Amino acid sequence: MKAKKFEQQFDDGADITASLDLSKARRVLQDQKRVNVDFPTWMIDSLDREASKLGVTRQSVIKVWLAERLQATNSIHPTL
Rank of each mutant, 00 (worst) to 15 (best):
K53P: 01
A72Q: 09
D11H: 15
L20C: 12
N74T: 10
Q30P: 00
E68W: 05
I76K: 04
L80Y: 10
K5S: 14
A25E: 06
L47Y: 05
H77W: 08
R58F: 02
R58W: 02
K4Y: 08
S23M: 03
I62L: 07
S46W: 10
D12C: 07
K24Y: 02
P78D: 06
K53C: 10
Q30I: 00
S60P: 00
Q59A: 13
F39D: 04
E7L: 07
I76Y: 06
S19M: 15
K4A: 10
D11A: 15
P78G: 08
K5G: 11
V37A: 04
F39W: 06
T79L: 14
K33Q: 08
W42E: 14
D45G: 06
L80D: 06
T57F: 06
S60T: 13
D48P: 01
A14E: 15
R27E: 05
V61C: 01
K33S: 08
L66Q: 11
V28D: 07
N36I: 07
Q59G: 10
S23I: 03
A14H: 14
T73M: 02
S75N: 10
I16L: 09
F10M: 12
N36E: 13
G55F: 00
K63A: 12
V28A: 05
T57R: 06
R34C: 01
R26P: 00
L22Y: 04
R34E: 08
N36C: 10
M1S: 14
W42C: 03
N74P: 04
Q59E: 13
E68K: 07
D21Y: 04
K63C: 07
V37G: 01
E50F: 01
W65R: 15
L29P: 00
D48H: 08
M1G: 14
S52K: 14
E50A: 03
T57E: 06
I76M: 13
M43F: 15
K33Y: 10
L47R: 01
